[in-house]
Design a protein around this nucleic acid. Sequence first.
RNA 1: GGAGGGGUGGCAGAGCGGUCGAAUGCGCCGGUCUUGAAAACCGGAUCCCGCAACCGCGGGACGUGGGUUCGAAUCCCACCCCCUCCGCCA
Length: 424
Amino acid sequence: MIDIRIIREREADVRAALRNRGSDFDLDGWLALDARWRALVTERDALNSERNARSKEIGRLRASGADTAAAQAAVRALGERIAAIERELREIEAERDARLLWIPNLPHSTTPVGPDASGNIVVRTWGRLREFPFPPRPHWEIGESLGLFDWARAARMSGAGFPLFKGFGAELRRALIRFMLDVHTREHGYTEIAPPYLCTAAAMTGTGQLPRLAADMYRVAEEDLYLIPTAEVPLTNLYREEIITQPLPICVTAYSPCFRREAGAAGRDTRGIIRVHQFDKVELVRFVEPARSYEELEILTGHAEAVLQRLGLPYRVVALCTGDLSFAAAKCYDLELWAPGHGGWLEVSSCSNFEDFQARRAGIRYRRADGKVAFVHTLNGSGVALPRLLVALLENGQQADGSVELPEALAPYLNGRTRIEPLA
RNA sequence: GGAGGGGUGGCAGAGCGGUCGAAUGCGCCGGUCUUGAAAACCGGAUCCCGCAACCGCGGGACGUGGGUUCGAAUCCCACCCCCUCCGCCA
């Protein structure tokens, strides 16, 4: 969440941010609740002060042997008034804070203003699009002819939208996970984490998935746990409710499966593995000093790009505009791979700076050089999402004879095999 | 799942109805000393909220939430987490 003081003191900025994001948050209603809350707190504190003084006096009187029955009755009456105020205070505070969780982060000044994805800006492109002497096929056809997937049997056991990798497809998936983790741990300095895949509502609220995205997540009712939609959740919650004492930045990476109901996306991208309920991803998270967080965002984005460069896949970097920016982010770059068979760009990574939005929700603080405690800034990025990476590998690497050539960088992870032949 | 023990400041760890925001040690910050550092010695420092917004005033926080009481870190209840033993199990 954003700093409550910012809402009080920079109302115009908050209003502009809500407008630019297309949010319909009722700011006036919230401000009225907050004003009432503050008035009640002031009243309650004054009464508490009086009770404290009088209770101490009773203690002194009793020590000297005096009768304190009348004084005790008076303070009891005071206590009843306090209790009444606190009942109202609790109610108002709960409502105010529940609403606060629905205010999105303030976009950074360098985030372009725009209504939706049409306002996004391509900031750079890398690599050259391959020219095909034959019509490139989409990945689901390639995967079918190479025997990499089994959609029909997966659907029978789990329903539509769950991938099943088979044979060399499964091996390739495993190779890509290892390749990406190795790049980030060995070359980019990240510590690998193998986190839980189920998290509490509190953790989900900390990173901003709840309350807004509740309908997009799978929930285990008996335990009140959620299946993670991204390893961002357990990684960022690593330091939940802590004051970090080790030096920043802290850089962690994790492979995890990601679970998404995709409740609002029925009918979109139904073929293949572009949009599925379960997918694999390697995630990068950085806990950084606030003054450095935008520099760190460029570094993080570079780490995600390095994976694509090593694989020789053409991509572009897109700066998301205010209307397309995710709820908790202040600034975000998407990395998009070119998929010639699909005929479009595929988002394989989102690299975001959340500033202190998540840190405030999750209570992640550090001790500054001057000894003061302050919220860290958190960043995360996919490094990268596996299915769409696989799509790009298959579609860019396809040959006229139906085989697929894979990048040399993967050879060590595939026992040297970088060519997939069609089934006989 | 059963029995017992425990959750206190960055960490460890006392306190078990009022004088406790909380001993002590470590760590941290400043100073003395030193060419510099270490050691030693001296001093300092928790966090959150409201009001005022220049100094400041007040409230709250000892896992979380309720309760008892004039007054709760201390007593009661519920929940969460950790440890030990038993059971179950990959």
